[in-house]
């Protein structure tokens, strides 16, 4: 136990620096992935074949393949196509793909649960298709999808721990390098785990709270 406190005090700053990288990676992937996910959520049911096939490919591979495979594909695979990215950029690209794929399905689910009367109503009022989407379907669909998107964000934050395998200096790789230089594996990993938990447990509560708040009027 003393050991744990000593490790926390001595390596706390390094680990917190790693946590900052983890959070940055999470936020970047969400910021890039969510808009693409929104696009794909329309793409998978689009009439335009090229758009639909591209969307279905990215959504199915992004959801079907483990995040670890996508990470290694971007970091070890892309150099074969003469595209060499930094570890941070390739991790970001891989997790953006995952985010886009999962959020596309979650957003599509939200859009589908917008009552059809709302859409018929907007037709009856003579709204254009674009206005119907912009003012009726998308705002309500996103609101319905919000709790599950927040739940996904927590899982994505946890998935950033896999980026250690492509040498991103995030929390897990900091913990591993401290562990392998001091042989104090157990306390270091416990402190790292608690740091992850300190973010993801409250974030889970937040998503449960959002679900309660938003389902109040349903």
């Amino acid at each position: 136990m003393n050991n744990l406190v000593d490790v926390a005090i001595e390596y706390g700053p390094t680990l917190l620096g790693g946590l900052k990288v983890s959070l940055t990676l999470t936020i970047l992937s969400l910021a890039l992935g969510l808009p693409i996910g929104l696009l794909f959520s329309f793409g998978v049911t689009a009439k335009n074949k090229a758009f639909r096939y591209i969307s279905v490919f990215f959504v199915e591979v992004g959801r079907g393949a483990p995040a670890l495979v996508l990470l290694q594909l971007m970091y070890y695979g892309l150099p074969n196509a003469n595209i060499t990215l930094s570890s941070m950029a390739s991790a970001c690209l891989a997790l953006t793909w995952t985010t886009a794929a999962y959020s596309a399905e979650l957003i599509r689910g939200g859009m589908q649960s917008v009552p059809s009367g709302e859409i018929e109503g907007s037709h009856a009022l003579g709204m254009s298709y674009r206005d119907c989407l912009r003012f009726v379907v998308i705002p309500q669909g996103l609101r319905i999808a919000l709790p599950s998107l927040m739940g996904f964000a927590v899982l994505l934050f946890q998935a950033t721990s896999l980026a250690y395998s492509v040498a991103v200096p995030e929390l897990m790789s900091q913990a591993y390098s401290i562990g392998s230089s001091t042989f104090q594996y157990l306390p270091v990993f416990i402190v790292a785990g608690l740091l992850y938990a300190a973010i993801s447990i409250p974030a889970t509560w937040l998503s449960v709270g959002a679900e309660r708040l938003l389902s109040r009027h349903l």
Binding site: G179, Y185, F189, S200, I201
Partner: peptide
């Protein structure tokens, strides 16, 4: 349950493999 789900699986594997 919250602790098991709040800590990423990689961390659990590393604790078990390197730590124990």
């Amino acid at each position: 349950v919250d602790l098991l789900r709040g800590i990423p699986p990689v961390v659990w594997l590393f604790i078990l493999y390197y730590g124990i």
